[in-house]
Design a protein around this nucleic acid. Structure first.
Length: 376
RNA sequence: GGGGGUGCGCCGGAGUUGGAGAGCCGGGCCAGACUGUAAAUCUGGUGUCUACGACUGAGUAGGUUCGAGUCCUACCACCCCCA
């Protein structure tokens, strides 16, 4: 797996690059739709690849381990074969579930013990075990097992947690290095920076993560409720330390404005549930701001969801029709808005790449942020 | 034509020895929230007004009572049974 930087913006720190994987090339900056349970909720693989041209999607180790289970995924020949998505995939390690299912787990040096949210059964997630599971799932990019700390998080806890994440990383790395992919193509392990909102911890963590010779690096533990200024400040500090020649993945971020600002700080990869979750709840993104398609005011607006979009779904269906589908609780409604929001995010990334390459990124970004700020 | 039953919010229910009510539960409707997905979920609002307080209201019109959604009378509407 190989990453090439093909453009570097100035005076912003935005970059454009190419990450080559066994399942295809990812052009960065990129947004990766989240498909936790081997499915980007409500969106067909065909629509992902043909209509909105997603380059890579996510899966989740914790969820896939619980259901359908690694036996089934191995039998299928890996996640790509199982869900039919033949482009790159990335699996999160379950570190986020350490955060979001906090009341169902206990953290020990050995790992995290979960009681399943499905049937209550007990499971140990150790760094080694999580590497083994991700080998079996077979995503192109796999993530280290970390603790995603909550916000707020006191300094003492953040520091202790960061060190635990670093020790877990060492164990992940060793296991990863001593095992082979199961399906004949290369996998890459991305380590994750932690340190909550503390500059010194973030610097320290970034240095530790940078010392690994990984294909790419990730920034975790952000967008968990902290102010945007903290998100940007921490991202900036970490990006200044992580190696330039490797892709940087900011986990779980974010809003369209978050993405634009973080691209300007040197981030290359993003994922977030916002576009798909909001879509299912009727909130759609447009260049004019976000709108709630369920609102009464769209009932007779027969204009397309987004006439400027580059994909079929967003230009084909009208606001009034989609509002009607939501009012009627038709499944097609959330399906259309999910595709639309993802298309919006991917269009944004596409234009960002072009702007970075032609040198007009910063003014374009600033104009767009001014326009979208407070609304996205 | 005769007998019986039922009538309160946008809709459907609940609400009996007559005892505080703009007032319960669903739905609908109107809004809001959502950041490595326990989320096709959750939260709030939904009589009127001169609006941190007032006013009006239970099919309609009367009556009994300290007090009526609840009891009585007439009428109206709808439902059921008999002709």
């Amino acid at each position: 797996m190989k990453f090439d930087l093909i453009a570097q913006d100035t005076p912003s720190k935005a970059r454009a690059g190419r990450l080559e994987t066994a399942h295809g090339t990812i052009e960065t900056p990129i947004f990766m739709p989240v498909g936790t349970i081997a499915s980007v909720k409500g969106v067909h693989q065909h629509e992902l690849t043909q209509d909105i041209k997603a380059q890579i999607i996510l899966g989740n180790t914790y969820h896939l381990y619980l259901r359908p289970g690694t036996d089934i995924l191995e039998k299928a020949g890996g996640l790509h074969k199982f869900n039919g998505f033949d482009k790159p995939m990335l699996t999160d390690s379950g570190g986020y579930q350490v955060f979001s299912l906090a009341h169902r787990r206990k953290i020990k040096e050995e790992g995290a013990t979960f009681s399943s949210h499905i049937d209550g059964s007990k499971h140990l997630f150790s760094p080694e075990g999580v590497m083994d599971i991700q080998r079996k799932i077979g995503a192109d990019i796999i993530m280290a097992f970390d603790e995603c700390t909550p916000y707020p998080c006191d300094y003492k806890y953040a520091k202790r947690s960061m060190h635990l994440t670093h020790r877990w990383l060492k164990r992940c790395w060793n296991r990863f290095e001593s095992t082979q992919p199961l399906y004949g193509y290369e996998q890459a392990l991305f380590p994750i920076v932690q340190g909550s909102v503390y500059k010194d911890l973030r610097k320290q963590s970034a240095q530790v993560i940078a010392s690994y010779d990984s294909v790419g690096n990730a920034i975790g533990g952000l967008s968990v409720g902290e102010p945007h200024e903290d998100l940007y400040e921490m991202t900036d500090i970490v990006c200044s330390i992580l190696p330039k020649e490797k892709p940087r993945y900011l986990m779980g971020v974010g809003t369209p404005v978050n993405l634009l600002e973080c691209i300007a700080l040197g981030v290359d990869m993003f994922d977030c549930v916002l576009p798909t979750r909001n879509a299912r709840h009727g909130l759609i993104y447009t260049r004019e701001g976000k709108i709630n398609i369920k609102n009464n005011k769209w009932k007779d607006d027969f204009s397309p969801l987004d006439p400027a979009a580059t994909n079929h779904t967003s230009t084909f269906y009208s606001k009034a029709y989609v509002r009607h589908l939501f009012q009627s609780k038709e499944l097609l409604g959330p399906q259309i808005t999910s595709i639309h929001n993802l298309a919006f995010y991917l269009d944004l990334m596409r234009e960002a790449r072009e702007r970075i390459k032609d040198g007009s990124f910063l003014t374009w970004k600033n104009d767009l942020v001014t326009k979208l700020d407070r609304r996205l």
